[in-house]
Simulated scan of single mutants.
Amino acid sequence: MEDQISTLVLHLGSFDLEIPQSILVWFVLCIVFAVFFIVAGKKIEKADPTQAPKGIVYIAEECYNIVNMVCKGNLKETTMHYLPVFGTLILMMGAANLTGLLGLQNPTSNVSFNATLAICAFLMIQYHGIRKAGAKARFKELCEPMFFLFPLNVIGEIALPLSLTMRLFGNILAGTIITMLVYTLIKSLLPIGVIGLVVTPFLHAYFDIFSGLIQTYIFFTLASFFLGQQVATEE
């Protein structure tokens, strides 16, 4: 491991595997949320439905309400079918974007991580669209309103994962860089630079909390909207 825990290096014979801190943070979050979901599930099974929820049951219920608020308007009657995957990723990305408050590297500041999530969302949209209507209907949809617009429609479809990736990456990375520059300036101007610590709570409040949660909301609102276009019944 390097002097700074920014990258974990695993030596596998003659091959060195470098794992960025952002991926390590995501791995830890996977373990934490897995434990949370298991414990919450057991508590919910034993909970008395006639009593007001409390503790971890109340937290789980509020998490469900938040996820439902993000997805239900887009997924409509299919919400419950896709809620497990969207719910898990929404909660984990929201938590991941808050890790900057602990001085850790946000997983979403890694463009490869964001691209992986965006491509998975894109493939899920295409797969379920074809599964519901069939490949012929999906191809026909890409040819609307005229056949010669097919290439442009394909480009529009491919633009979705690219847009999701770069929007999330740009906003989160910008906040990380600005915050890092402020701390570097404070350190270089010590002891006078200590005054700058008055500003840092507001930076974290905006970039780590407000911007992080807003970007999570936007990412999954768009993903659920385009999925809903393929699988939900039009009103």
Rank of each mutant, 00 (worst) to 15 (best):
S211L: 12
G170W: 06
I192W: 11
F169D: 04
Q215K: 03
T179I: 10
A174T: 14
S163K: 04
T176G: 02
Y206C: 03
L162F: 15
G170N: 08
G212M: 12
F210T: 13
H204P: 00
G196C: 04
T184W: 09
T184P: 00
S211Q: 15
I172G: 01
L173C: 00
Q215E: 14
F210C: 07
T165K: 11
R167K: 07
L190F: 13
M180D: 14
A205Q: 14
L173K: 15
S188W: 02
V198D: 01
G212K: 13
T200H: 06
S211W: 07
Y183T: 04
G170Q: 05
V182A: 12
L162P: 03
L173V: 13
A174D: 02
S163F: 14
F202C: 09
P191N: 01
H204Y: 12
I177G: 07
I214Y: 07
I195Q: 02
S188H: 03
L162S: 08
I178R: 05
T179H: 13
I209W: 07
L162N: 00
T179Q: 13
A205C: 11
F207G: 07
P201S: 06
T165M: 14
F210E: 03
L164N: 08
Y183E: 10
N171F: 14
Q215G: 00
L213H: 05
T200C: 02
L164R: 10
N171E: 10
D208R: 05
F210Q: 13
V194E: 03
I186G: 01
P191H: 01
S163Q: 07
Y206A: 06
N171R: 11
S211M: 14
R167N: 13
G196T: 03
I214W: 13
V198Y: 05
G212E: 08
L168A: 10
I172K: 00
K187M: 06
F207A: 09
V198A: 08
T165I: 10
P161R: 12
I214P: 01
L190S: 09
T176Q: 14
D208N: 15
F210W: 15
T216R: 11
M166C: 06
V194T: 10
I209V: 15
T216I: 07
A174Y: 11
P191C: 01
T216F: 06
P191A: 01
L189P: 00
Y206G: 02
G170Y: 09
G193H: 08
S163N: 08
Y206E: 07
L168Y: 11
L164W: 10
L162H: 03
G175L: 08
G212F: 12
G212Y: 12
I186P: 02
T216G: 15
M166N: 09
V194W: 07
L185E: 07
